[in-house]
């Protein structure tokens, strides 16, 4: 009974996770600038791989594997924002421009390296 349930759940999670991965991939192709693309990659991408690891955790039904898979999910959730934050900061600091449709930029003017020379 539990095995049947876990099979259905695993399959559903696999499809959901890969659908999010596809959406993230479409997003980084359609969105206009690197800052907007980061939204797609850091959210949909993280959720995609996280959900698929959870599917593996449910499927395994073995304490060690389940624990490691869940630890991996937590690890991805912790690191994905950090890497995209650092990338956004670096891209902004060295002067990669935002999309021309950008409506607001409240970053302090001295945050771009070499902006004052």
């Amino acid at each position: 009974m539990i095995e049947i349930l876990s099979n259905y759940l695993t399959g559903a999670l696999l499809i959901i996770g890969s659908a999010f991965a596809v959406v993230a991939a479409i997003g980084i192709n359609r969105l206009p600038d690197v800052y907007s693309r980061m939204h797609a990659a850091s959210k949909a991408g993280t959720l995609g791989s996280g959900v698929m690891l959870i599917a593996l955790a449910i499927y395994a039904q073995d304490t060690g594997t389940t624990l490691r898979a869940l630890a991996g999910v937590v690890f991805f959730l912790l690191t994905a924002p950090i890497s995209s934050h650092l990338l956004a900061k670096a891209a902004y600091a060295v002067g990669y421009p935002m999309w021309k449709g950008t409506v607001l930029d409240e970053m302090p003017p001295d945050s771009r390296i070499g902006a004052d020379d």
Partner: peptide, 16 residues
């Protein structure tokens, strides 16, 4: 993000 990306014309107003 999924809904926005899949919609045919994205009405974006990004900013910081």
């Amino acid at each position: 993000v999924a809904v926005m990306v899949m919609s045919p014309n994205m009405n974006l107003k990004p900013g910081i």
